[in-house]
Amino acid sequence: MGVGTAALWFVDAVDPSAILRPGVRSSHDAAAAVARRLHPGLEPDLVGMAPLTAFGVASEPDRVLVGCFPGVTVVCAAEPAAVRPSTVSETWRTLSPARTVYLVASEREHAWGAFAQWTDGTLRRSFSAGPTYIFEDEGLPQPWERPFWSGEHPLRFDGDYPDPQALPFHPQEFADAAGAQWLGVRMIGGAQDGDVDPTSVLLCDFVMRDPAARPAPNSAPASSGTQSTTDDQPRKRGLFRRLVG
């Protein structure tokens, strides 16, 4: 499987969508502090402000997107995009203090999607799947999941013969619906009626650099959300955890 990206949401706000709906910009100082906790010894260089829809950029080495808003913090990176969300480390889950932590993750090439919820440090629900295989399904399904399991959001196939093992829904659409239910925002498929417009939620797009390393000539970062600028930097970020068996 390729490199996936996850958004970890740390939420204390009663209504996260009310915080995100005005199209607020992340606090730079607070976001930089989170990035330093994430990568001790490295310094965050701000590439620019990136919309939430660009969260896939965080799959690039040494790249992290952070948004800090009142009662809501979101961190986009490759490491927590685990095939089994229940294995996301406590270090990641406690990166920012919050009673509730949500994960929404995806990987486009293999149509993989995942989501999870922790409350007071306890896993309440986790799900991870590709179109024909469930990797993890922990906790009780929540009421908003019912239309997916009942076949109201079927997978679309090219040709006349769908895979007989196919799930009754697209895993990425399922994960996106989790974000809509919990946060009022969809990061993968775009806004629907009543959703927060994800392009209006602006995160700090950082490249993490070793302050002791000499910068390469003419290595100024490109504008956010477009292309990697880190090929000449130490690769300290982990890759998406591959399936076993």
Rank of each mutant, 00 (worst) to 15 (best):
M1K: 03
V3P: 01
G4N: 06
A6H: 05
A6K: 01
A7V: 13
F10T: 02
V11N: 11
D12H: 08
V14I: 02
V14G: 04
S17L: 13
S17W: 07
S17C: 14
I19W: 00
P22E: 13
G23W: 01
G23M: 05
D29Y: 07
A30R: 08
A30E: 13
A33H: 08
P40I: 12
G41L: 15
E43W: 05
P44Q: 14
G48H: 12
M49V: 03
L52K: 04
T53C: 10
A54I: 00
F55Q: 08
F55I: 07
V57P: 01
V57H: 12
V57K: 06
A58F: 13
S59N: 10
E60M: 10
P61A: 01
V64P: 03
G67R: 11
T73P: 07
V74C: 12
V75H: 11
V75P: 13
C76W: 08
A77L: 14
A77W: 08
E79H: 09
E79R: 08
R84P: 02
P85W: 04
V88W: 10
S89H: 00
E90Y: 00
R99A: 15
V101S: 13
Y102P: 01
L103A: 10
S106T: 02
R108V: 14
W112F: 13
G113S: 03
W118Y: 00
G121N: 08
R124Y: 03
R125W: 08
R125E: 07
S126H: 06
S128E: 02
G130L: 03
P131F: 02
I134Y: 09
G139Y: 03
L140N: 14
S150D: 10
G151T: 09
E152M: 13
P154D: 08
P162D: 05
D163E: 10
D163R: 07
Q165H: 10
F174A: 00
D176T: 01
G179R: 06
W182Q: 00
W182M: 00
R186Y: 10
R186G: 14
I188K: 03
A191M: 11
Q192I: 01
D195W: 00
D195A: 02
V196C: 10
P198K: 11
T199R: 15
T199M: 14
L202T: 04
D205C: 13
V207F: 01
M208L: 15
P211D: 07
A212G: 03
N218P: 00
S223N: 02
S223P: 06
G225N: 11
T229C: 15
T229S: 15
T230M: 09
D232C: 04
G238A: 14
L239I: 04
L243A: 12
G245A: 14
